[in-house]
Write a protein that binds this DNA or RNA. Structure first.
Ligand SMILES: [Mn+2]
Ligand SMILES: [Mn+2]
Ligand SMILES: [Zn+2]
Ligand SMILES: [Zn+2]
Lengths: 139, 139
DNA sequence: TTTCAATTTGTAATCATTACAAAATTAAAT
DNA sequence: ATTTAATTTTGTAATGATTACAAATTGAAA
């Protein structure tokens, strides 16, 4: 919990209890949670939590560079702490989003055909390894 | 217009007048139009056009492999004929979406870390060349 | 304790998209 | 030409994620 507070202070965000819990939930989760998933995960600990607070807080975190957001298949936005740059794979069957640490060119802060790149999102979509196995067993 | 009809027939889509006009609008546009943009562009020619028809038709086109859709920055879905695989760059200032034909690995139909890739979307976001110039002139 | 700014909340609004059933169109069958 | 059935198109209502906004709450300084 001290680790969480430290991160917020380093990014000039007042470490309120809500913000600490939201960031903690995000750090504990490895599943790229959506705003709604974070909201539901915290309802036990903060019964008075408002979904607007979750949205506001996530926006603040992103503006301050604490987290990153991305969206795959145009449903809801998903959030994660920014570790090393990586790609995402979303399974069409089970919906799981996997991190892919492959050999992708990182174009951030590079100039591409004259355009200044600030963000890069590599989204792969298909059938994950687990669902392929499941399909074979069913057949 | 014959070209349009031919494409529809080749993909086993009945070439109704609406479908031909929607596909034509998509072929004439090089701006990755959204469903709403296509709808507004056609309202002159088909005053009775329903937005639902545009959505239905675009979905049909995509299912039949005539067009592809993608989404960048999680606003609306955008559509294009599928030429060679390429990446997209969206300018944060003017909103323009550029095609980027760089040297990107095409992972379609490949296996990545055990996952079967069916779609690949490379989205770059930043400030486009034109807007960089404009900024310099203003300063 | 008073004050004031920052944070949080609840509700209503927005926007893209989908669901669904009725209406219109088309082509085939009589 | 008329009937029939399937397909296409339409209009409206519903959905779901997100945002706008104003009121309520909190928390630190004076
Ligand atoms: Mn990730
Ligand atoms: Mn393109
Ligand atoms: Zn799966
Ligand atoms: Zn621009």
């Amino acid at each position: 919990m001290d680790r969480v507070k430290k991160i917020l202070l380093e990014h000039e965000v007042v470490p309120s209890i809500h913000r600490m819990l939201i960031l903690q939930a995000l750090m504990n989760s490895c599943s790229h949670p959506s705003a709604d998933e974070i909201y539901r995960a915290l309802l036990n600990q903060i019964p008075t939590l408002s979904k607007t607070t979750v949205y506001n807080t996530l926006k603040t975190f992103e503006e301050k560079g604490i987290i990153e957001s991305f969206s795959i298949m145009n449903n809801e936005v998903r959030y994660e702490l920014q570790p090393h740059p990586h790609a995402h794979f979303k399974c069409k069957l089970c919906g799981t989003i996997y991190d892919i640490y492959g050999s992708f060119d990182c174009l951030r802060d590079k100039i591409v055909e004259g355009h200044k790149v600030q963000e890069q999102h590599i989204n792969l979509i298909g059938i994950c390894a687990a669902c392929q196995k499941k399909d074979k067993n069913d057949a």
